[in-house]
Design a binder for these strands. Sequence first.
DNA 1: TATATTTGACCGAT
DNA 2: ATCGGTCAAATATA
Length: 295
Amino acid sequence: MSSSREKAVQALLYGHGCANKLKLRLNKRKADEGSVSSDHQDLAKTILGCFSDALSVLIDSTTSSSVDQPFEISPTMSSPCPPPLIPNPRRDQRVSPKKRRTSNTEARGENWRDDSPAPIYYDGYLWRKYGQKKIKNSDHQRSYYRCAYNDDHPYCEARKHVQKIQEDPPVYRTTYFGRHACPIHQDAAFPVAFNPADDSEGARMIKFGNDVDRENICPGFQLLANRQDQILKEESTEEQLNGDQDQDQDRDVTENKSCPSDLVLESSLFLEDLDLLDAFEFCPFDQFDFPGCQS
DNA sequence: TATATTTGACCGAT
DNA sequence: ATCGGTCAAATATA
């Protein structure tokens, strides 16, 4: 994918997350106060739909030449390499590879799952792809990623799988396994509430914390992260006080009983802090493009 | 040259 | 026997 298209997708993903957040806020306000006009709700819904449509168009046009290849916005954007013409004889001499993990998701420590119209590019962690596999009864391949710092810190067992599970609108499921044990990530910003207890209660929390490296790369990130953390805490408290309606909505997101496109990007960065971003002259889109931040 | 991705093979779980 | 997760050489890219 070209760089400009990549940036367009990133911007759309950000916009989609913002629109989604706005819609949820309006829904919640209506439930709480009943004072939200249906016009505003419709407007938010329309905006959300526009972002979804635009993403669908871009993603479709990106993947049309390689149907089974997941849509990737990878930092290095490598092109697919052709299959080797000659099998490597040394593969037969391989000695005792690592034992594979069980396929049981609980035993493997599945922590969190997220469905989105495009693979999550930026979730706060750095990942390295180590495999891709055709999955039975699925038209699409599953990509396997592990923590990019796993080479230096083999005890960090964090992994994630990404697979397209629905065609129209496109839905990509990202499943996270294990816990980051590498020093770089275990105290890092983002993503997931890795506490299974939280997950069982329908938590879709993104945890923002300290991340010195990212702050160094993108000035203003820490301020944003701290603010996001505060917002999430407030929302967490609000949700506990909320009625059944919101709880049911959360449960649907977590259990993936239904994954409407207007809910799948709940894990994206939140947006009502655009004023905050302006205040620090921090381009919200730069968060997806660290090389750009560095320049 | 260093680094990341691709992809067929390997192998444990079912 | 089949499936899915991982390995690691080959390859692509910066």
